[in-house]
Design a protein around this nucleic acid. Structure first.
Length: 583
RNA sequence: GCCAGAGUAACUCAGUUGGUAGAGUAACCCCUUCGUAAGGGGUAAGUCGCGAGUUCGACUCUCGCCUCUGGCUCCA
């Protein structure tokens, strides 16, 4: 079946859904219902609410109606006819006026006969014969709210989602994949593995790192700093609040508006920082740099706070306290290229280590047609866009241009990475900024002894430590590589009379900075192995009579490998090597 | 914020005409001394999200609030 064909079927199913809804709920008003990647949806204005408990009834009605639908009969009607036909449906009337204003023909499609006859406003693209749709290849999925025309100022409608694929097998495959995604959901695994938690008393969107989660976070943070420290970056630190004035000068007060957290000290009002940039600008401004000092590079994994709307919060991927692995470079326009050339290898190394480099792409986000939406001189923009594009080419990045995707203050490179089940995440970013240096009147002294305005490059590698942890959990499905695993190896004695030797092995591992755990419980071996597997520990060693006798350990791995006997020294060497290489 | 659903033990979940709560897993103890995903027995564990109201009596009904899930909108 052609891709095109399945789209037609999805679209037709949306009509079928509307027809069934009208018959079951005569006072419901159909609005819009397109085909989407996984099926279709249709938005209705229901007088009485429905829920997924009604799906069986609706699906049955759809199947019943489908028997009478052989095709879709197209008819072009006049504006007046259309107004009469849809007189009771203000949503359709709105669409009709819009179509008419654009000078396009108004068309309706009618299908079915007798009770099953249904006419809908539509521009076309339907399946030829509904009866040919394979049984079991579609189903209703869920109900959700959706604003009329996607605008929150409008009325909230009820959206009914349906899944539809070219065959029953394809539908099952899709559902299996969704099931897999649910299994590795970071919220579920984060709870099970005690990585992080939330508290009603602390508040939504404010994650707390458990000891296990902090081990992972610290390992990532250390790695990030390691990637920067030899490339001319300096660590800085900035407080979490600042006077209102700072954000008025920076423009963030206007940009973030109600998203800013306000705090009061006495009668003075402060803001929790929504960005680190203005703070870093102030550190720069405290110095009198010469062109010889440029570029100046600051790095700070820093937590920022934004009052995201309650409904947008989700696990670690959308929170109100975000720790960016933030960095700001102050340089001359002529240095942008060399700076990007330094950042890209950092990005590459970081995501290669995380096994996420495969399938990445980069969006070169440039200005759109309406130049008034952006600040800065044309020639500076053109220059910066060209520099970024050249840097993308030089670094052999898989990039495409995104017209109109630039920030209002400058063009950028946004890095998209795929996780283990193919979902795409925008993580790293490199952004040119002409705005903030201007607003804060930053300068350095050039060769002629004159003040020169620097360009700022904002850059983040992981994006944010919280979101990245969420992505990692799902990417690895909780099976963290050894260097990240909270417990790297578990020592498992076969019986309690092996505990003495096992404890010695455990102590040796700990002394060598290996995160080891010791299962001294009086339980059978199977149970202890099961527990290690459940905890997704990468390695465990079994110690029984044979091992004590030969003064060795038997190493086994989470991934199913029986790695055989070795001395404790060899084990330490192997694990140390792996951790050092971040495997 | 808006629409819909949900909140019962550490975790996963039962609990209908309203009579103050159970199961499995985990934890702890005892027995078993065992070579790779569930040996046996026992113990402890819950302000039934929070607060009002109705009632002789509320996990259950009503109202308000909090939190989570799926969407809409927005974004790191």
């Amino acid at each position: 079946m052609e891709i095109n064909e399945i789209e037609k079927i999805r679209h037709s199913l949306a009509h079928l859904l509307a027809a069934a809804i009208i018959q079951l709920y005569p006072d419901a008003l159909p609005t819009l219902g397109p085909a989407i990647d996984t099926g279709f949806y249709y938005d209705f204005d229901f007088k009485t609410p429905i829920s997924d408990k009604d799906f069986e009834k609706i699906e049955n009605k759809m199947r019943e109606i489908a028997k009478h639908w052989k095709g879709f009969e197209r008819k072009e009607i006049s504006l007046a006819e259309a107004r009469t036909l849809f007189a009771n449906n203000p949503y359709k009337l709105e669409l009709i006026e819009e179509i008419s204003n654009k000078g396009e023909p108004i068309t309706t499609y009618t299908s079915g006969t007798g009770d099953a006859e249904f006419t809908d406003l539509c521009r076309g693209g339907h399946a030829d014969d509904m009866s040919k749709i394979p049984a079991g290849s579609w189903k209703l999925e869920r109900v959700a709210g959706a604003y009329w025309r996607g605008d929150e100022k409008n009325k909230m409608l009820t959206r009914v989602y349906g899944l539809a694929f070219e065959s029953k097998e394809a539908l099952v495959a899709y559902e299996t994949q969704q099931e897999e995604a649910r299994k590795r959901d970071h919220r579920k695994l984060g709870k099970e593995m005690k990585l992080f938690t939330f508290s009603d008393l602390i508040g939504p969107g404010l994650p707390l790192m458990q000891p296990n989660g902090m081990i992972i976070r610290k390992a990532v943070e250390d790695f990030l700093w390691e990637l920067h420290k030899d490339k001319g970056y300096s660590r800085v630190w900035t407080p979490h609040i600042a006077k209102k004035n700072l954000y008025e000068t920076s423009g963030h007060a206007a940009k973030f508006g109600e998203e800013l957290f306000r705090v009061k000290g006495g009668d003075e009002e402060f803001f929790m920082k929504p960005m680190n940039c203005p703070h870093h600008m102030q550190i720069f401004a405290d110095n009198q740099f010469s062109y010889k000092d440029m570029p100046v590079r600051y790095f700070e994994p820093a937590t920022i706070y934004r009052y995201e709307k309650a409904g947008q919060l989700s696990g670690l991927t959308r929170v109100r306290a975000v720790t960016q692995d933030d960095g700001h470079l102050f340089c001359r326009i002529s240095q942008i290229n060399q700076e990007v050339n330094t950042i890209v290898p950092i990005v590459r190394q970081f995501f290669t280590t995380m096994h996420m480099m495969e399938g990445y792409w980069v969006r070169l986000s440039v200005r759109g047609k309406d130049k008034s939406l952006y600040i800065g001189e044309d020639d500076v923009w053109n220059q910066a866009e060209e520099i970024l594009e050249n840097a993308a080419k030089e670094n052999k990045l898989n990039y495409k241009r995104g017209e109109g995707e630039a920030a209002f203050y400058g063009p950028k490179l946004d890095f998209m990475f795929k996780d283990a089940i193919g979902r795409e995440w925008q993580l790293a970013t490199i952004q040119c900024d002409f705005n903030l240096p201007e607003r804060f009147d930053l300068s350095f002294v050039n060769e002629k002894g004159e003040k020169e305005r620097p360009v700022v490059i904002h850059r983040a590698i992981s994006g944010s430590l919280e979101r990245f942890m969420g992505v990692m959990i799902e990417h690895f499905a909780g099976n963290f590589p050894t260097w990240l695993a909270p417990v790297q190896v578990k020592v498992i004695p076969v019986r309690t009379n092996h505990n003495d030797y096992a404890r010695k092995v455990y102590e040796t591992l700990k002394m060598n900075d290996i995160r080891a755990d010791f299962d001294s419980d009086d339980e059978n071996l199977g149970k202890k192995v099961r527990s290690a597997k459940n905890d997704k520990i990468p390695y465990w060693i079994v110690i029984g009579d044979k091992e004590v006798e030969a003064q060795v350990v038997t190493l086994e791995s989470r991934d199913g490998g029986q790695l055989g006997q070795m001395t404790v020294d060899d084990l330490v060497a192997k694990l140390t090597q792996e951790i050092k290489e971040r495997k």
